[in-house]
């Protein structure tokens, strides 16, 4: 907390300054509300409109969590399988890297075409965007296992499965968490974009409705909600990481962050 107080005040001050400039310029330059609403207008809408956007928010959170969970499971499973079967890894890994040059988002219309407007194509988009960072992070973690530890384990007679469970998996943990943090942010983005394609509920829908009716304040509310969602998600994973990886010092954790 102390470090937060000593380090955090500068960015906080800058943020406050920006808000003050924004607010005062909206007022004194008399910028149209529908073009660029003042922070106070946005905050008011954020408070008063709760009952309006709450169901949308809930729906997006649900979609994100389910997609993220499935994406993580698949990502880890792919990483483990590819790591344990080297011939398969050599065959598939380059293709996996190549596939990342296709922005997943451009596949969205195709997915809608195949799977309709239900929850399935949305989940597929989220899974696709968040599985890759996890797979790559986990595989890197497995592969960068210290040679000396591997030598020790082998000399001690460890089987392939002991080598993986007792050494490679725990060794990859910090790396996997880095992947999870990236994926968490991606999955929120994936959820919102998938909602733009057509849905009945969700922050993406709320945003589309707001912009088509020139409720710019609501668009801003949606943007802030997405930011808050991403940040809280990131924060939760950081907390879980701290619980699970106790052996690292602060310095190391920052380096891995």
């Amino acid at each position: 907390m102390k470090t937060y107080a000593s380090k955090g005040w500068r960015p906080t001050a800058v943020l406050l300054l920006l808000l003050v400039i924004w607010e005062s310029s909206s007022r004194f330059l008399a910028i149209q509300e529908w073009l660029f609403p003042a922070p106070t207008t946005i905050i008011r809408e954020g408070i008063n409109g709760w009952s309006q956007y709450a169901p949308h928010l809930l729906s997006t959170i649900q979609l994100t969590l389910i997609g993220f969970a499935i994406g993580t499971l698949i990502g880890l499973a792919v990483a483990v399988i590819l790591h344990l079967i080297p011939s398969l890894r050599e065959a598939v890994y380059p293709l996996l890297i190549l596939s990342q040059n296709i922005p997943i988002i451009v596949l969205a219309p195709l997915l809608v075409l195949w799977f309709g407007f239900g929850v399935l194509p949305k989940l597929i988009i989220i899974i696709l965007v968040c599985f890759f960072p996890i797979t790559v992070a986990a595989m890197d973690g497995f592969r960068q296992t210290n040679r000396e530890y591997i030598h020790y384990m082998k000399m001690a007679g460890a089987t392939r499965s002991q080598l993986f469970r007792k050494l490679e998996w725990p060794h990859a943990m910090p790396s996997i968490f880095s992947g999870l943090k990236i994926s968490a942010t991606y999955s929120v983005m994936g959820a919102v974009i998938s909602e733009w394609l057509g849905a009945s509920e969700g922050i993406g829908v709320y945003m589309t409705l707001a912009s088509s009716s020139f409720r710019t304040d609501r668009v801003f509310v949606a943007i802030f909600l997405i930011m808050i969602l991403s940040l809280s998600f990131f924060f939760i994973i950081t907390q879980v990481e701290k619980r699970m990886i106790r052996y690292q010092t602060e310095g190391e954790r920052d380096a891995n962050g």
Partner: peptide, 17 residues
């Protein structure tokens, strides 16, 4: 055959976790 002797490597190689 592995696992037949007990071994202490040149560096301690303790698992950090």
């Amino acid at each position: 055959q592995r696992g037949k002797i007990s071994y202490m490597p040149q560096s301690p190689s303790l698992l950090p976790w």
